[in-house]
Every structure is written in C-alpha cells, then in structure tokens.
Computed example of a mutant assay.
Amino acid sequence: MEKRIAYLGPVGTFTYIAATTLFSSEKNVQLIPFPTIPDCLQAVEEKETDWAVVPVENAIEGSVNSTIDWIIHHVDLPIRAELVYPITQCIMGHTSQEGRPGHEIERIYSHPQGIAQCQLTLRKMFPYAEHKMTESTAQAAELVANHPEQPWLAVGPKAAAERYELSIIKEHAEDHNNNFSRFFAVSREERLSADSASYKTSLQVTLPSDYPGALYQVLAAFSWRKVNLTHIESRPTKTGLGNYFFWIDAQLPVEHVLMQGAIEEIEALGCQVRVLGSFPCYFKKIGETLVANEKV
C-alpha cells in the first residue's frame, strides 16, 4: 500500500531531504509538497496524506514555533519518529549573475531560518542586499531561477541549487559549525519500520495555577529516577498573559516503568499531562546511512 507523505516543499528543501531519509527503506512512497508547515500537518489531520515530515528545532535558531503550536493547538497527531540532520547552507544565484560584485546584489531570498543561520556571512559578503523571506529555501531558489535578469541570490541546500540549476557562490555559508536541525514525522499509523535503539517521549505538561514550586517538583520526578531530559521549553497556552505549558522530551519510551512512574507522580501534583508521542530517534551525517541517534 502506498504511503503518502506531506513535507514542506517544494522539492529540494531540507524537509524534503529529511523525508527521503526517513522513508528511504520504505517501498511505494509518494512525497507530496505543501507550501507551509500548517498545511503539512493539516493534510494528515484531514487524511489527505498518511504522514507529515516537518522541522521542529535548529541548533542555532532554536524551536520552530509553527510546528510546536500546530501540534499542540490545532491537530491531534502522534509524533512517530525524529531525525537529526546536519544543515549545510549554500549561497546560490543564476548563472547570468556569476561574477557580479557583492555590493551590487540587491536581494537575498530564503526561509527565515536560512537567513538567520547565515546572517553574519551575508552581511559581510553582500552588505547592501535586502533580505526577503520565503516559505521555504527551495521556494527561494525557484524564485531566483525564474528571474535571471535580477541581481538576486538565494540561501538553501545544495539540492535546491541542483534542482533549479543555480550556481553555488559559497558552500558552508552558515555562521556556526555543528548546525543541525531536528525533524518530526507525525502520523496516525504505527512507528517507522527502521530499527533504532534510541527512543524519546514528548510530553505537554500544564502546571496548576495555584501550586508554588510545581515546576521544580515536575523536574524532580524525572531527576530522582535518573530519566534524562533532552529538551524543555515553555510555550503560551493562549488562554491569557502569563499562562504557559511545558514541552518536555525525555529519553525513554513511554511504556518504560520509570516514565510511567514519573507521569503518575506529575499528575498527582495536579498537573495535566498529554503524551505527544513516543518514538524512535535517528541521526544522519552527510554521506552516511541512517543510524540510531547519538548526542550531536
């Protein structure tokens, strides 16, 4: 049976690369591009596709708020897998613009994350260029390719340059080393068939409003059980100023006795706990095969 997978398109985005990586061992896969992250998640919610692959965090720029907010507030879809993938940004332009001095470049297009990850490099190389945001890095590459007469450039993956036949002006344009992004695969279906020895559980924890020290006790429930937390972040509940929930990632599957004990203890404090997913974690280096996740 064919699996339909939504991803943040068009072809050539980092999310496209993540989707092809996660489902590389699957047969009969159809990758379907969508213009925004909400569109990807809504496609699964409305059963237009079976899966969606979306970015959730970057090592330099932090969380992708659109993904977190839609998973929490707008759809009810379990997280089924996580992929950590190295991000290498390229500055690219149409072949007609090769050799143009940097001070003559008028615009640079990319997804906001792409611009932010390369902003020091862009300021140095193209000091007068206006930074224009697009829905994806591949959309930026497509825009530049369709306007060969304009002194415009794009920032994105090498795959986008190849897809739209652009010249790469600079590889590794990101300002910092160890630039990794985290992607989620969400679905009502079961977990991916690829094996992984590493699992996480994502929780949404909402504290009682009249319980001083509640967050400390929530963290203590994991601490004394020696459950490693890999991510904790506060996000607004959208019910009023100062009202927050916590997104917590714990490095154990939800069925583990220590995770079950921690959840029961947190609920006994009067907290609301929602399990957002319990899933295998994968890590991929450029040019290497998919492996169980490790600390990066």
Score class of each variant (00 low, 15 high):
N179E: 06
N179K: 05
N179I: 05
F180L: 14
S181R: 05
S181M: 11
R182T: 15
R182F: 10
F183K: 11
F184K: 14
F184S: 04
A185K: 01
V186L: 06
V186D: 00
R188D: 03
E189D: 01
E189N: 01
R191Q: 00
R191D: 00
R191Y: 00
L192N: 00
L192M: 00
S193P: 00
A194C: 14
A194P: 06
S198W: 11
Y199G: 10
T201K: 03
T201L: 03
L203R: 08
V205T: 05
V205S: 06
S209E: 14
Y211G: 03
L215Q: 02
L215E: 02
Y216I: 11
Y216H: 13
Q217K: 14
Q217H: 11
A220N: 09
A220M: 15
F222L: 04
F222A: 07
R225C: 03
R225Q: 01
V227P: 08
V227E: 01
V227D: 03
N228F: 10
N228I: 13
H231I: 11
I232A: 07
S234H: 11
P236N: 15
P236M: 07
T239Y: 07
G240R: 10
G240H: 09
G240S: 12
G240K: 09
G240Q: 15
G240D: 06
L241T: 12
F246T: 04
W247A: 07
I248H: 06
I248N: 05
I248S: 03
D249I: 10
A250Q: 12
A250H: 11
Q251V: 10
Q251R: 12
L252P: 02
L252G: 07
